[in-house]
Design a protein around this nucleic acid. Structure first.
Length: 360
DNA sequence: AACACGGGGAT
DNA sequence: ATCCCAGTGTT
């Protein structure tokens, strides 16, 4: 079935020359990156998951450590989830790690350890959405499939003067259809990576280097001097502030209490110091609230730090306070444990709570 | 379609 | 402060 929209967008556009220019530029100017050493589908997969919403420079050391620790798909499949989360510690969006771990086990059990090379099977794997599916197909298997991320939407919105709001979910499909027509059938890998590399190095959000752009003469936005007005993106609302008391709760031997977060939601399955939501609990009643909710009696001491931590959708304001355990048993249903500062290193903690560790 | 989901770096 | 980043899953 014909797609009128993408056909009209690409009308009078020299797709062939554009592809040649883009691919030529990518092949000479691409950065040397650890996941570009070969086409191993497992390495491509790991890199693409890590690169979701995350800058290349941030990913590099994580990728290298991760591949050292889990060199093969089978090695990762056989690992404990806590080990995988520890390797992901500090990278954020921890469901990526848990989904990758689960999906790799699925590949071992269902696909004989071979990463699928078709849309249907790839899509069925946890953590692989439309973008990652296309990235694996094109980069690992040289198959022409769209891999539309934020870079690609920015680059193509400018080159083709597409003025749809890229914050809308439906807009990604517009770009996917355009890429399906535009993509090089000769070298879809270099085409997709070239678009993203161009977005990262040249066609940047604030200050695009149009004078250095290998496809400048194809760019409709540049021709009209409108490159800074694209892409169109509606803004999101600001984060809500949530105040907490974070406890450095020690027993008589100097061990501290940490607890595991729930298996769903924010920072799932990571560990943390106990937190009291000050939005729900009056500060004078913290000790009694703790007794009711944890089953043990404590004495509060000095505040040692204030930590502000911004997530994508909320802001934690943590007042870090020292406390002493006096007596009582932690409720059975809680996953609390007493650990030494040394033992703390084995547990995956969110960055906000790593900042608390130095006060222990 | 809208929202939850981390953390860091650039401006 | 605000935006952005090689997005996906859930509701």
């Amino acid at each position: 079935m014909k797609n009128n929209r993408s056909e009209r967008i690409l009308e009078a556009f020299d797709s062939l020359t554009f592809c040649e220019n883009l691919i030529q530029w990518f092949q000479t100017e691409q950065r040397v990156l650890p996941w570009r050493e070969n086409q191993d589908p497992y390495r491509v997969w790991v890199s693409e998951i890590m690169l979701q919403q995350t800058k290349v420079d941030t990913v590099i050391p994580y990728f290298n450590r991760f591949i050292d620790q889990f060199p093969t798909l089978q090695a990762l499949a056989g690992a404990e989830e806590q080990q995988v989360l520890k390797a992901w510690e500090g990278l954020g969006y921890y469901s990526r790690a848990r989904n990758l771990h689960s999906a790799v086990q699925e590949v071992v059990s269902t696909y004989n350890g071979q990463v699928p090379n078709n849309e249907k099977e790839l899509s069925s794997l946890k953590g692989i959405g439309p973008y990652t599916k296309g990235a694996i197909l094109s980069i690992a298997y040289d198959t022409p499939a769209p891999a539309v991320d934020g870079n690609v939407m920015r680059v193509l919105s400018r080159i083709l003067m597409i003025e749809d709001d890229i914050a809308k979910p439906a807009t990604r499909k517009v770009f996917e259809e355009v890429v399906r027509e535009l993509i090089s059938k000769e070298d879809p890998s270099s085409f997709n990576q070239g678009l993203m590399e161009l977005g990262a190095l040249i066609c940047t959000p604030k200050k695009p280097s149009c004078m250095l752009c290998p496809v400048q003469n194809h760019c409709r936005a540049f021709a009209e001097g409108k490159e800074l007005q694209l892409p169109i993106k509606s803004s999101k609302k600001k984060q809500k502030k949530l105040p907490y008391l974070a406890l450095i709760l020690k027993d008589e031997r100097g061990k501290v209490v940490i607890q595991q977060r729930p298996e769903q939601g924010l920072l799932a399955n990571l560990w943390e110091f106990p937190m009291i939501p000050l939005q729900e609990v009056n500060k004078e009643h913290v000790a009694s609230w703790f007794k009711e909710n944890y089953g043990v009696e404590i004495v509060l001491h000095d505040t040692v730090d204030h930590i502000k931590h911004t997530f994508s959708h909320i802001i934690w304001e943590l007042e870090v306070i020292e406390a002493t355990y006096t007596h009582g048993q932690f409720f059975e249903h809680l996953t609390t444990t007493f650990v030494t500062k040394h033992e703390l290193e084995q547990y995956p903690l969110p960055v906000s709570h790593q900042k608390i560790v130095k006060h222990v």
